[in-house]
Amino acid sequence: MNARQIILDAIERIAPDVDVAVLPPDVDFREEAELDSMDFLGVLTAVHEATGIEVPETDYAQIISIDRFTDYLSNRMQSV
């Protein structure tokens, strides 16, 4: 399972109106996709459902962009 795809699927599920294909991968995706705190929590929940991995609040800074989120998630998935 591709970490990036999991993340994009999660965003698409929470925000079906966003065209995830054209989301710039290196900017704050919360701002770009206009996700509020509940939406963001929803994305994390969807990622958790797909991977079993919970992102603690203290790690939020590491997943600001899709690129960085992908790196973070891949690392954690590998160490599982």
Binding site: D36, S37, L41, L44, V55, E57
Partner: peptide, 17 residues
């Protein structure tokens, strides 16, 4: 809030809102 959320599962996390 950060302390509380750290100790809880994702599904129990509380947003500031």
């Amino acid at each position: 809030l950060a302390e509380a959320n750290e100790a809880r599962a994702l599904s129990d996390r509380v947003v500031p809102g």
